[in-house]
Design a protein around this nucleic acid. Structure first.
Lengths: 262, 262
DNA sequence: CGGCATGTTGATGCTGATCAAGTTCTGTGG
DNA sequence: CCACAGAACTTGATCAGCATCAACATGCCG
């Protein structure tokens, strides 16, 4: 899979998606939008299972995930895998507050993905922290940190049920922020094994816990579609806190105005 | 406890310690060192149990911990506490890649501590990423991220024994970097309950696991002194990886010659 | 259709939590 | 210096949550 294979319609749709995400936090200056358009034009498709970024690689090429799902993960010497956080459409990765720092974990595509480089963000890290790009970079770094902190709470203090609920609620809010939630439900295009490696449980126990949630009519699943039936109750059960950065982004969304095809 | 009570000899010692830590990564420009001296002059003592930084507070006042231990923690609604990371002498806290972002967790003094503001770093975040201060900021942010990532691995994938070993090794390397290790041993001035809240275990189980390690002659403890007897073996047992940033701290290298073989 | 990945179920056992009762350490005031 | 109280640590007993192993069912894809 590569860029040549991407239908022109997808290219246009994904470029618009990218521009929308990048300007979510404020209007871009004219030259910034110009740079963004150029960067997005270099979008590239990659198959699921690809390592998008190797652990230890230099973090000097910011990227945006335009389509598909990926994770930040680390594989221990005996084969155990820990997933740190999920990357979903609209997420920026490959940057670090440490200039040219090494990646602490690899980025791994769960599905086929489309990514685009964002050289403008690498520039922004080096200078002009006040610009629109600077804002984007800092927001991206802040989100990553938030997700990590939430992950620590899940793994350190929560039961299997709480961990899964908490993670599903995080998916909900993040997907909602990019218009990928419809009727309280969204698509999770990966296996229970992935979920298990994220929440630190065995696949068997993840499976049973999900069944339990279905039996209690807290969630519904149908193929890859997952539906959260009573988000308020779920949030209480799992002591869920919305990521501060997402609050403003997700809040008001005019459905008629959401021109994003699902 | 406040600044007035700090003996003059301590003030001088801690100021020198602070200057040494701040210039670990490279020489400071003259004006930067000047600013550092001024900042360190405002050092302040606070009692153990103090909240140094509230969750949700604006992160616009960088600080350095000159003496004592603290933690980043979050308390869940039902009283469970998760410790994310430890702050030990020489550590910088109260900054974030998000300008003026909210603290995601509180900073809490485990012992009586001495801190100093570092307004120069807040400035550096806003501009001049290339300066010596910019380097310090980015290194601090990078370290925080590293510790969080390691914490996720511990909590998500490791057994009680592995978690404790791994954390102790982290303490070793971090304390060694600021000269607080002597003869493979160091002081941990806090209770097993603190350790338990960090590694996500009950105090009883933490206690038993530590005893096990002592019985196997892997560690020794005497009062608050902890001694790691066979670090190589311990590192293998717990799949420990040294934080990349700390490696170079032990053996400083010229940034331009980063490819130089060791 | 066959083969493989994924999901599901049951049986069993270990890791670590919880509860309760000491014991040792530490700091305090007499 | 001792007496005392509270905190920290230790120990034992019991139990629950989750892992593991094994078998089977289901879905997917060539």
């Amino acid at each position: 899979m590569n860029r040549a294979r991407l239908p022109q319609a997808d290219v246009a749709r994904l470029r618009d998606f990218g521009l929308r995400v990048l300007s979510r936090r404020g209007v871009l200056a004219a030259d910034e939008e110009q740079a963004a358009r150029a960067s997005l034009g270099e979008m590239q498709a990659q198959a699921g299972g690809t390592e998008l970024l190797a652990e230890g690689a230099r973090l000097n090429r910011a990227q945006i995930l335009l389509e598909g799902w990926a994770v930040h993960q680390r594989v221990l010497s005996d084969g155990r895998r820990q997933i740190f956080s999920f990357l979903l459409p609209g997420d920026i990765f490959g940057i670090s507050a440490r200039l040219n720092g090494e990646a602490l974990c690899s980025a791994f595509a769960l599905t086929s993905v489309v990514t685009a480089p964002l050289a403008m963000l690498d520039e922004a890290l080096r200078r002009a922290p006040g610009s629109g790009c600077g804002r984007i970079v800092r927001e991206a770094l802040g989100l990553e940190e938030s997700f990590l902190v939430n992950q620590v709470v899940r793994l350190g203090q929560q039961s299997a049920q709480e961990r899964l609920i908490n993670l599903l609620l995080e998916f909900y809010d993040r997907l909602a922020a990019v218009g990928l939630v419809e009727d309280d439900s969204f698509v999770l295009p990966f296996t229970q094994e992935v979920l298990s490696d994220a929440v630190g449980l065995s696949t068997v126990h993840t499976n049973r816990t999900l069944q339990q949630l279905r039996r209690e009519h807290l969630i519904e699943t149908h193929l890859n579609q997952t539906r959260l039936i009573d988000r308020k109750r779920l949030a209480e059960m799992a002591d869920y806190r919305m990521v501060p950065c997402l609050e403003t982004a997700a809040a008001p969304r005019d459905h008629a105005n959401a021109d994003m095809p699902l």
